[in-house]
């Protein structure tokens, strides 16, 4: 835990080195994520944004470096300790990753069924509370993922990620594939839920409007290293990709918009 006025560090990465098929994606990366903030991670296609997320939640083993989540190093955890850690975070995957053979309500109940002993009636109620919190209509509960639109699938995935009241929420490209209106609504939703549930959010995105609307800080993945700052400070970064990203046509439009 940090001393002084800075809020406690929830995710702490030191010297992360990731290698996939011999290619180095992250070279000696350091990153701190503070409790209660929304951190956006951006970078070009193939720069390893999603891999960084996967490394933090333990789906990808780093070649070197330390990753500490909620005060515990993931590498040291196994069995029950790992499960206890996993219920403290929720992940929304890019396409929602809903289980196709279960209805939306059943999908949301999967973590509840696995990790709690709630009676079925209460689980039904909690599932419908979750679904309305993420802005899904009541009739979506009985539908199968294939019957939903992309935006609704993401909301349903978010409801499932939030099922166990996690402290940490990981979002992988939450607005990719959504129309601008749906994307803007999703941004507002993330911000609202972050405030009402006191979440810490780690968000991978390349949507500059989402960055502006939701994030407190931004980490840019460029040339295998991270540059961390705010929207205002990163505009002045001399790195060509970062400059192009924030000062380019879309970037300027998002700033002034």
């Amino acid at each position: 835990m940090n001393a002084g006025a800075a809020p406690p560090v929830v995710i702490c990465i030191r010297g992360l080195l990731t290698r996939i098929d011999g290619r180095v994606l992250h070279d000696n990366i350091d990153l701190d994520v503070y409790r209660g903030e929304i951190l956006g991670v951006v970078g070009g296609s193939g720069s390893g944004k999603s891999v960084l997320l996967r490394s933090i939640v333990g789906l990808q083993t780093p070649a070197a470096g330390r990753i500490t989540v909620l005060g515990q190093e993931l590498r040291d955890l196994d069995g029950d300790a790992l499960v206890r850690m996993q219920v403290r975070w929720g992940v929304l995957f890019q396409e929602g990753a809903l289980f196709g053979d279960q209805t939306v309500a059943e999908n949301v109940q999967v973590p509840l069924r696995e990790h709690t002993d709630l009676p079925q009636r209460l689980m039904d109620e909690v599932a419908s509370v979750r679904l309305s919190m993420v802005g899904l209509p009541a009739d979506a509960a009985g539908k199968y993922p294939a019957q939903l639109s992309g935006g609704m699938r993401k909301r349903a995935g978010l409801a499932r990620a939030l099922a166990l009241d996690p402290e940490l929420l990981f979002l992988d490209e939450p607005t990719a594939g959504l129309d601008p209106i749906a994307a803007a609504e999703f941004d507002v939703l993330v911000r609202e839920l972050q405030q009402s549930l006191h979440l810490t959010v780690f968000m991978v995105t390349h949507d500059i409007d989402t960055l502006r609307a939701t994030t407190d800080r931004i980490a840019v993945l460029a040339d295998r290293t991270l540059r961390i700052g705010t929207m205002a400070s990163l505009v002045h970064d001399p790195h060509p990709w970062i400059h192009e990203y924030f000062a380019g046509v879309r970037g300027r439009a998002a700033m002034t918009g």
């Binding site: 209805t103 309500a105 059943e106 009636r121 039904d124 109620e125 599932a127 419908s128 509370v129 679904l131 309305s132 919190m133 802005g135 209509p137 009541a138 509960a141 009985g142 609202e192 839920l193 405030q195 009402s196 549930l197 006191h198």
Partner: peptide, 21 residues
């Protein structure tokens, strides 16, 4: 006051009757 936002969100959003599978 810490719980206001949470309670408000649930109270405000959850008007629908609970689903019964």
């Amino acid at each position: 006051p810490e719980y206001h936002a949470l309670v408000h969100t649930i109270d405000h959003e959850c008007r629908a009757p609970p689903v019964t599978l």
